[in-house]
Amino acid sequence: MADSDFPPTFSIPTEHLHISYFQPDDPAHAAFLVQLWNTDDFIQSCGKTGIDNTEKAAKFLRNQVQAGYKRNGHHQFLVSLKPHVGATLSESKPIGIASLMKGEPPNAYSRPDIGYTILPDQSGKGYATEAAASLLEYAQKSLGIDGVFGFCGKDNKRSARVLEKIGLEYRGQRKLKLFGGSESAVYALKGMDQDLKVYGVDDDE
Rank of each mutant, 00 (worst) to 15 (best):
K165A: 09
V34D: 09
D121Y: 07
A160Q: 12
D202F: 08
N38R: 09
G200T: 04
L189E: 04
D193C: 09
D121F: 10
Y21R: 07
L178T: 06
A98W: 00
P27M: 11
G167P: 03
F151I: 09
I114E: 01
P24T: 13
G200N: 07
K190H: 07
E15C: 08
K175R: 14
D5I: 02
Y199S: 02
S110C: 07
E15D: 14
S90E: 12
G180S: 07
F22M: 11
I51L: 14
L119E: 08
E130A: 05
S20A: 15
G191W: 01
T88P: 00
Q194T: 13
T117S: 15
L168A: 09
V148W: 00
S110R: 13
S80F: 01
S159Y: 02
S159K: 00
G181F: 08
R158V: 15
F151D: 00
A133V: 02
K157R: 12
A28P: 00
T54H: 02
I12P: 09
G172P: 01
D204P: 00
M1Y: 05
L61A: 08
V162C: 05
S11Y: 10
G126E: 04
K157I: 14
D41H: 12
P106Y: 03
S90R: 14
E164R: 10
I12C: 09
V148F: 04
L36I: 10
K56A: 15
V85N: 12
G73W: 07
P112F: 06
H18N: 11
N156Y: 06
A58F: 06
Q76M: 11
T39E: 14
Y116T: 14
P120V: 10
Q140F: 02
M192Q: 01
D202C: 08
F151Y: 10
K190A: 14
A67L: 07
I43P: 04
F149I: 03
K197Y: 00
K190C: 03
C46P: 03
N63E: 15
E164W: 01
M101C: 10
H16M: 06
A67M: 11
D195F: 03
R174E: 04
W37Q: 15
P120L: 11
Y138W: 15
G200Q: 03
T9P: 01
K70Y: 06
A30F: 09
Y187H: 00
N38H: 10
P106A: 11
S92C: 10
T88W: 02
L163V: 05
F77E: 03
L163P: 00
A139G: 12
V79F: 04
G172E: 04
H16L: 05
L143H: 10
R158F: 06
G126S: 10
M192A: 03
N38V: 09
S92N: 04
T54Q: 14
S20P: 11
G200M: 06
F60G: 00
D5S: 13
Q66W: 11
K190V: 12
L176H: 02
P112D: 12
P7F: 05
G103N: 12
W37N: 14
